[in-house]
């Protein structure tokens, strides 16, 4: 693990150029929080509610489909507003990539990204082995529990909603959970929360399985194997085959739904190996 990641990219593209998408992502994450906060703070109501369910400009309902699934499992038949809201959110992530939520919207990403940054700075290498599939088991558990208990048990401790709700409506002791996640990611498992456990991420992983918007290592022949993209990628297993699997017949597109489309790989690559692309035009190129 190198201490200075993306130095070549910074030298070549300048600091701004090598942090473009990272900055955009932070603007998106904080901007969404700000839109929710402007209501209670300054009485400017663009977005009401929180990530679990909200209303945009007093007209468009948006509901977290995972939340609604938990509610359904608990035995409640929701009103139409929530169902339409969930369909809107579902369609958005179906198109733009499910885990776009994780890297561009979810506030917990700020915590886990800083934990990973500190991990690199402190050169902490130790990481307990945990399967990345764990999150799907947790997802199953969070959907089965409401069915048995009749209440959304996961939502009692869900750090994503606790964080987002806390910022808008008051945190209380919710920060304890968030510090817990930070330390877990820092000391125990690298990319522990977002990459291994979070059932919301697992849910959006499934939602975005067939998303047309993907990152492609379209110039993989130019890759100089500096491995900076592997260092910054929150799901580095998705890079391996698209980058190095040409001989085994793998295409350059990062097809795995684990990919969060955070596109930090584009930032840190000095060779411009990656670009954002859609599935369909690539198919057309292949056919030629």
């Amino acid at each position: 693990m190198k201490a200075s990641v993306g130095q070549e990219a910074i030298d070549k593209k300048g600091w701004l150029g090598a942090h473009k998408f990272l900055l955009l992502r932070r603007v998106s994450q904080l901007g969404i929080l700000a839109l929710f906060l402007m209501g209670p703070l300054y009485d400017i109501w663009i977005l009401k509610g929180n990530l679990s369910s909200s209303v945009l400009l007093d007209t468009i309902p948006m509901t977290d489909p995972f939340m609604l699934l938990q509610s359904l499992s608990a035995g409640h038949t929701p009103e139409l507003t929530a169902i339409i809201g969930a369909l809107i959110v579902f369609s958005f992530y179906f198109i733009f990539g499910g885990r776009v939520f994780c890297s561009w919207v979810c506030p917990v990403n700020l915590i886990t990204d800083s934990a990973h940054w500190l991990r690199r700075k402190l050169k902490i290498r130790a990481s307990t082995k945990l399967s990345r599939k764990t999150r799907f088991w947790v997802l199953a558990m969070t959907l089965i529990l409401p069915f048995i208990l009749g209440t959304m048990a996961w939502e009692l401790i869900n750090p994503v909603s606790i964080f987002h709700r806390g910022v808008i409506f008051g945190m209380g002791l919710g920060w304890v959970v968030l510090v817990g996640i930070f330390l877990f990611d820092l000391m125990l498992v690298e990319h522990g929360w977002c990459g291994h456990i979070c059932p919301l991420g697992a849910f959006y992983n499934i939602v975005g399985r067939y998303s047309p918007i993907k990152v492609s290592a379209y110039q993989r022949d130019k890759c100089d194997k500096c491995m900076d993209c592997f260092t910054v990628c929150p799901e580095p297993q998705v890079l391996k085959m698209p980058l190095f699997g040409e001989g085994k017949g793998y295409g350059p597109m990062i097809e795995s739904a684990d990919c969060t489309n955070c596109v930090r790989c584009i930032d840190v690559c000095s060779q411009d190996v990656f670009k954002i692309t859609t599935r369909l035009p690539i198919m057309a190129e292949v056919k030629q």
Partner: peptide, 22 residues
């Protein structure tokens, strides 16, 4: 089973009566 903990009711309440449990 039904409440999605979104706080829309809290924001709709003109008298700040409603709070969300922490």
């Amino acid at each position: 089973a039904a409440c999605v903990r979104c706080g829309l009711c809290v924001e709709a309440c003109p008298y700040d009566t409603l709070k969300l449990g922490k």
